[in-house]
Each structure stands twice: as structure tokens, then as C-alpha cells.
């Protein structure tokens, strides 16, 4: 199977879907002539022309609004928000428009848009360029939210998102674009509503998505050496949130840890923990442990920034503590 980076897997998904369906078009800041801020859209304007790869002004509200209006008239737009931080400017369009239109108009229309956007920190970009907002999106009925962590899932979920009839928030991570892995050629579709075990284990369940999935998998390897068998569940499908593999895993391990880059309060881990308590309380041998970003605006200083985001060591220490092995 070909080995691709997440960046190239996403590029392949976009190219294949644009070849398959003439109604698919891309829009965003510097996605065309510039080839994309993170080069995910590299070469696509050259291949498909300016109509289907639309460079926009730096004006986030019009990017999302244009996508919605075009979708309502029959197209399948894929909007790139250069980074998730800028989407704050367009949140009215995301929530009040994209997420609500179908319901508030009584099902009279659908809004098949994809908003691709990278989030996450760790690059010394400070407070305004280091956010993780997937929990904000996942709070909203009407949106679907996914955050894949592997190249194969990146391709397969983006293709599924483009074919989906709902607004899909497709959350990427700046720190994973170069991560490589096997990616099936051609038609490879991954459902938007299925989470899965990425590494089986018996002692503790670790739930993580996007870049933190990779951190969790890395930690699980080390834990193995320390005599702890960790099962890692990829929480790539955040809304609808597929809890089935988590519950099944917790029934076996009796211990659960959530890992996310974003802030702890009202976060992804909070939701996962609540669902575990609701559905598998009696199977737990200890409270669910949440690992999350420090609740500060992300600092610029490299040493401070490192303290602000979860790392492999945090997962290892937390797992050992949870299992009473410290």
C-alpha cells in the first residue's frame, strides 16, 4: 500500500472527489495560486482551474457564507479555514446558518458543505494561533464533527465528508500534516460516525483524537514496556459521538483516560467521561482521568508552551497512577 503523509492523503481525497463530481469546488484563503498555507491544496488550481479552486479575500464570514449559499443552490463546496483560530470570525455562519438552516426551514433544504480547518498548538504561535475548538463545534446539533489522526482516515473521512449531505467540520492538526502512513489507493471511504480501537489492550482505555491519538499510541508502546496493556480508541468521530468502542473497551479494562489538546473544562474529555459514567459506571474501577491542555491562553515562550499541551509523559504518568503502579 502506498505511504503518504496526511497532507498528501488529504490532497488525494480532494483531487479524487473533484474528478468524481463536477459540483465539488474548493474555496479559501491562498488555496489556489499559493497552493495553500499548509500545501494541502497543492496543484489543484493548476489541475481544475480558478472556478473550482477559488482564492478568496481574507474574509472568513464570506468564505463560510459563500459555501453555504452555493450548497443551497446545489454545489458541494469544501471551504478551507486557514486555521481554526480564524473561524471565530465566521461562527455566526457556522452555527446560526450552516447548522440551523435545515431544521429551522422544516427540512426544506440541505447544506452539504465541508469546512476543513487545522487547529492545535505547539509551534510557538502564542494565544491567537494555537486553539483547538472541536468541542465548540461538537456542541452544536446540525453539525457533524470529525478529527482524524492517521493518513488513511484523513483520506477516507474527507471523501465521506464531501459526499455527506450535512455541514461537516473537518478538523485537522497543524502538527500532523507530515505524519506518514499507509493509504489505500482510489475509492477508500471511512464512515463519519464510527470510532475504532487503533491498538488493543487489556488494562486501561485511552480515548484520543487527532494529534493526541498519535501521542496516546506512542505512550501505549512505552506502557507496554512498563507492564501496562493500554487499549487506544480513536475518537475521530466527535459528532455524532460514537461511544460503542469506548464502552466495550471500558467494560474490559475498568479504567479510562481521555486525552485532548484543548482546554479541560467543558471539553471533549468531559463529554466522553460523562457518557462512560452514564453507560458503564459499574464497570469502572476508578474515576475517568482527563488529560487536557492547560487552561491558559497559549504562551509563546517555548518552555512554557510545552507545559501547556499534553505529552506522552502525561499519559504514562496518568495511566500508572490510575492503575496504582506509581
Amino acid at each position: 500500500m502506498p505511504i503518504l503523509s496526511i497532507r498528501d492523503a488529504l490532497n488525494q481525497a480532494l483531487r479524487e472527489e473533484m474528478q468524481r463530481d463536477p459540483n465539488v469546488f474548493l474555496l479559501g484563503e491562498d488555496i489556489g495560486l499559493y497552493d495553500g498555507s499548509f500545501k494541502v491544496t497543492r496543484g489543484l488550481m493548476k489541475e481544475f482551474g480558478e472556478k473550482r479552486v477559488l482564492d478568496t479575500p481574507i474574509a472568513e464570514e464570506i468564505i463560510v457564507g459563500t459555501a453555504i449559499g452555493a450548497a443551497m443552490a446545489g454545489l458541494r463546496p469544501v471551504a478551507e479555514m486557514m486555521t481554526v483560530n480564524f473561524i471565530m470570525v465566521a461562527m455566526d455562519q457556522v452555527v446560526n446558518a450552516a447548522a440551523h438552516i435545515r431544521y429551522m426551514f422544516g427540512g426544506g433544504i440541505k447544506v452539504p458543505i465541508v469546512i476543513r480547518t487545522p487547529g492545535g498548538g505547539g509551534h510557538q504561535l502564542a494565544a491567537q494561533h494555537s486553539h483547538s475548538h472541536e468541542n465548540w463545534f461538537a456542541h452544536v446539533p446540525g453539525l457533524k464533527v470529525v478529527a482524524p489522526g492517521t493518513p488513511a482516515d484523513a483520506k477516507g473521512m474527507l471523501k465521506s465528508a464531501i459526499r455527506d449531505d450535512n455541514p461537516v467540520m473537518f478538523v485537522e492538526n497543524e502538527g500532523t500534516y507530515a505524519v506518514k502512513g499507509e493509504v489505500p489507493d482510489g475509492e477508500h471511504l471511512v464512515p463519519l460516525d464510527k470510532n475504532e480501537v487503533k491498538r488493543p489492550g487489556d488494562d486501561v482505555t485511552i480515548c484520543a483524537h487527532s494529534r493526541m491519538l498519535l501521542v496516546a499510541l506512542d505512550a501505549a508502546k512505552d506502557l507496554e514496556q512498563l507492564g501496562i496493556s493500554a487499549e487506544v480508541v480513536d475518537m475521530r468521530a466527535l459528532r455524532p459521538l460514537d461511544m460503542a468502542p469506548v464502552i466495550e473497551s471500558v467494560r474490559k479494562t475498568g479504567h479510562a483516560i481521555t486525552v485532548e489538546e484543548g482546554w479541560r473544562s467543558f471539553g471533549v474529555g468531559a463529554e466522553i467521561a460523562a457518557r462512560i459514567y452514564e453507560e458503564a459506571f459499574d464497570d469502572l474501577d476508578a474515576p475517568v482521568a482527563r488529560i487536557a491542555g492547560a487552561e491558559v491562553p497559549t504562551p509563546y515562550n517555548k518552555r512554557l508552551e510545552k507545559l501547556a499541551f499534553p505529552a506522552k509523559a502525561d499519559v504514562i504518568v496518568t495511566a500508572r497512577a490510575l492503575l496504582g503502579k506509581n
Binding site: 464570506i62 449559499g69 452555493a70 443551497m72 443552490a73 446545489g74 454545489l75 446558518a97
Partner: peptide
């Protein structure tokens, strides 16, 4: 009649998107 919207100015970008679809098609 593509809708009444209750956030001031919200539907202007949508009108542009539909305009883009018209040109596209």
C-alpha cells in the same frame, strides 16, 4: 424564497454563494 434570517446581515454572504453557484452552473 430561500429564507428569512434573524441575524442582521447574515444572509448577504449566502446570497453571494448562490450567485456563485449560478455562475458556476
Amino acid at each position: 424564497f430561500f429564507g428569512g434570517y434573524a441575524i442582521v446581515g447574515e444572509a448577504l454572504p449566502l446570497a453571494c454563494g448562490t450567485g456563485y453557484a449560478i455562475r458556476y452552473q
